[in-house]
Amino acid sequence: MSDSPTQEHRSSLPGILGHIDNFLAKAESLILALGVLLMALNTVANVVSRFTLGESLHFSEEVNRILIVMITFAGIGYAARHGRHIRMSAIYDALPYSARRVLMIIIAAITGTIMFLLCYWSIGYVHGNLRTGRVLPTLGYPIWFIYIWVPIGLAVTGIQYWMTAIKNITTRDGEIYLSTAVTDGYDEEEEMLAELQDELAEKQDKPGTRSQQEKD
């Protein structure tokens, strides 16, 4: 279980769009990492408070609810960017190159479109929550506020898939792009597994010391 294939995302878009894209990529990973760590902190703090102060943190549950929405919808954009959405590719993999390329263009375009549709409907949903003025019972925050990530995440994901479709249309280098940055095939993972096993073998020899490979 390791990081995404591309450690640093470098946008393939030109000029200012590229900068925006790079910024979005950074923002997504920051939200993901901080969201997960805050969730751990929040949950542990609740236990600590219950034992030391004899009082649970009543906002704890609601904070986690906010974080989980944030992580999920920031994460789907990030996953689209890195071609990590789960798919059943058995038939697809068996097709010849040109058929796969056409199929991938169709898949990416339809997926992007569905994401835009969901985005549009979610704006309606968030707006409805804004109108009824529903609030979180303990924190008192308006509920629409915690769902604001939903249309944003869906829009970013939709854009990623459309860019993938365009990339596959415009690029003819014998590769098929799962996302703007990642090409088809699982070879990289195979390599990583081999690497992992070497690493394991090494660690086993000297369990107390820090392995040399894992420096900063």
Partner: peptide
């Protein structure tokens, strides 16, 4: 002392990614 802050950041990011693709 086997991990540093950077590792933790990367691990958290990877956790977030896995969570997102399953939760969606």
């Amino acid at each position: 002392r086997s991990l540093n802050t950077r590792d933790i950041y990367k691990i958290a990011k990877s956790t977030g990614l896995i969570t997102a693709v399953v939760f969606i």
